Amino acid sequence: MIQLIECPRDAMQGIPDFIDTAIKAAYINQLLEVGFHTLDFGSFVSPKAIPQMRDTAEVLDMLDLHKSKSKLLAIVANVRGAEDALQFPEIDFLGFPLSVSETFQQRNTNASIADALKTVEAIQNLCEAKGKKQVVYLSMGFGNPYGDPYSPELIAEFVEKLAQLQMETISLSDTIGVATPGLITQLFEVQTQAFPQIRFGAHLHSRPESIGEKVLAALQGGCRRFDGALYGFGGCPMAKDELVGNMATEVMIETLESQGFELNLDKSELAESLKLARFVFNS
């Protein structure tokens, strides 16, 4: 079964002009009507680091979750953020950004990889106590622009450490949009076969013309969980290419359906979401 994760948080967080809380909530409420498996809707991180997400708790209070089958995921960067997020029973998943790059881990969470792994373990314990699940995003999963060590074998070492912590979901993240179809297939093939108890997701960034081939490559490797954002909004500024953004959800849907996957989405609500996205992102 395909799990399709829509990521309004990732689409919004880098926008310098603050998006009104009511507009955020209206957009996420619309996305809740579509039938995505999960919405990566907000984050509990320092408002100094990500000012756009400072109103996540207020947005959550405005969401209409009663008729939606979608689950909610919030990103956290430390134990305090996890504790804040776990105060809200509506949140199903906590996402943590763990990097195979020492440089990026320091830049992203102001911690070493060793300390970040301790944080992952602490959050895992908190989630188990609260009946929640943690999703670890393994960033720089397909390449490293900082000159830090990188290899498929290094990814396997990180996955092994996370498997020892009983992690159920790991999302391999192409933070800077450098993954090739061959590497995507290789990484997912190796990991899905070595760790069948773990669900591996793809959080890829891409130029628009490469989205379809990257989805197909991940499918070939055994991936059945995909993150995206409508129109590909958002992405990592470190990619240094304004055309590299999130994987456009509507393109992923078209690709997945062309391969015979039944996604059970409400297409009329998806069309409304696409219209509203243009307004929210002023595009």
Rank of each mutant, 00 (worst) to 15 (best):
I2P: 01
Q3C: 10
D10V: 02
I15G: 05
D20F: 14
A22T: 15
A25Q: 12
A25G: 11
L32A: 12
L32K: 10
G35M: 05
T38P: 00
S43H: 05
S46W: 03
K48I: 09
A49V: 09
A49G: 00
I50D: 04
Q52W: 10
T56E: 03
E58C: 00
L60I: 11
L60W: 06
L60C: 07
M62K: 15
K67D: 08
K71Q: 14
G81H: 12
A85R: 10
E90G: 01
E90S: 04
F96I: 12
V100A: 03
F104P: 01
Q105M: 03
Q106P: 01
S112Y: 07
V120W: 12
I123G: 02
I123F: 07
L126K: 11
C127D: 04
E128N: 09
A129Y: 08
S139D: 07
F142T: 05
G143L: 03
N144V: 12
G147N: 08
E153M: 12
E157Q: 15
Q166I: 00
E168V: 11
L172G: 13
T175C: 09
Q186R: 12
L187I: 07
Q193S: 15
Q193M: 14
A194P: 01
G201T: 11
R207E: 09
E213K: 15
K214G: 03
K214P: 01
A218N: 10
G222D: 06
D227M: 09
A229I: 02
Y231F: 08
A239V: 11
K240F: 09
E242N: 11
E262N: 10
L263F: 09
N264E: 09
L265H: 11
L265E: 07
L270P: 01
L270Y: 05
A271G: 02
F281E: 13
